[in-house]
Write a protein that binds this DNA or RNA. Structure first.
Lengths: 215, 215
DNA sequence: TCGGTAAGCTGACGGCATGACAGGACAAGT
DNA sequence: ACTTGTCCTGTCATGCCGTCAGCTTACCGA
């Protein structure tokens, strides 16, 4: 799958090359955390990495290209979130636990990678197919599993037939993502960090099962 | 409230001035719809408006300054969304109707202004206080009303005491906003436009009242 | 040990956006 | 026609972009 890393002009990157490449990515990631995406300049990233702009262009076509690389990494990590839902129960107390752990895990993931996720979100919203694909990959890990959960509950007659599993799952995941990226908004809003998670978990449980959780 | 419009160097703008200023804003708005925020350049906006970059700088400190102006306009329009919730019933069939109309109105508003809302969202997520304030103003119109609704239901004993009205209201609104800005994602996801709205309405109703709606 | 070869890096350059300024164009009133 | 204040633009220094030729470094086989 992952062929060897190549420079823009087609050479294969060796040890040293991969190191500087990675350093550039790390610095870019830092910059994204500390300054608005719009203001991130190639020259700044290069300077921070102790190299020259020309070197940057040897490994990436432009800033966006490098960001896509970072995004792929995040996507890879995000795929692991399937485990937060897959094969878990949605009935009784364990159902409530599933819900809580999903919220916890998801928010945690988002907070860990918020800078890049912001950019992915923007790119996707602006209609960029590459960013959209990456965003899908990340959210799919959770949405896919959740959709399955709803379908199973429907099959057992525990959820109304007229709900669309994918629509509900997608909406809930988008909610989690939105809350995660605007947590500051909530605090400025009078909502304490501590009460946010349980309320989210409650909403998720309600949405998936249609019933209040048994705590 | 709205003092007279002023240029960057302090002069008051006359008729002609306000016209070109508005034209610049319109062109900027168009550009935001058609190309990524990061790539919107002053020179392009000016060209599109049939004027020079220098003129742009007479009315706005930079692109961001102009965007903030657009954002304020959107915020003003968004304030009207209070009516989608304020004073409406959440019981019985009218409760379901309230929920449906809220979803409908909110999605509509978001779609009408998606380009600027994207930028506001990004700015807010990046921690810019001005954008955060504007975002709050927009969302508050709905969240505030929803919070009141939940509080009332709580007072009547129809909703559990341990839910945080603000947390629930905020989360639901964020969900609506998220879904609105990534609708393409949902279709690519196998969810049809038509089934999205009722499912969202169901989630909103569930979240607010804790019960399935009576359709 | 010694080239040979490919990887790795950078100085330098034309091109373009930025943002500031001074001065010209224009409209309105006298 | 003259004045006044608004409005616009040509021009310029500055700084980033993206590319290329050419230099340095590392590896390898003879």
């Amino acid at each position: 799958m992952t062929g060897q890393v190549r420079t823009v002009d087609g050479r294969v990157a060796g040890r040293r090359g991969q190191a500087t490449r990675q350093k550039l990515l790390d610095c870019l990631s830092e910059m994204l955390s500390s300054s608005p995406y719009r203001d991130v300049k190639v020259i700044d990233v290069a300077r921070k990495a102790g190299t020259s702009p020309a070197t940057f262009y040897q490994y990436f076509p432009d800033v966006e290209g490098a960001v896509l690389e970072l995004a792929e990494d995040v996507a890879k990590e995000g795929s692991g979130m399937t485990e937060l839902v897959a094969g878990r129960s949605w009935v009784g107390k364990s159902g409530w636990q599933t819900s809580e752990q999903l919220v916890e895990g998801f928010l945690d993931f988002w907070r860990r990678n918020d800078a890049i996720l912001r950019v992915i979100d923007l790119g996707a919203a602006e209609g960029d197919k590459r960013f959209n694909k990456i965003r899908m990959k990340i959210l799919n890990s959770v949405t896919g599993s959740l959709t399955e959960s709803v379908k199973e509950l429907q099959a057992k007659g525990k959820v109304d037939k007229d709900v669309s599993p994918a629509a509900v799952a997608g909406s809930l995941v988008v909610m989690l993502a939105g809350v995660a990226s605007h947590q500051k908004g909530f605090t400025a809003w009078g909502v304490k960090q501590a009460e946010l998670k349980p309320n989210l978990a409650q909403l998720v449980h309600l949405g998936i099962t249609g019933k209040k959780p048994a705590k």
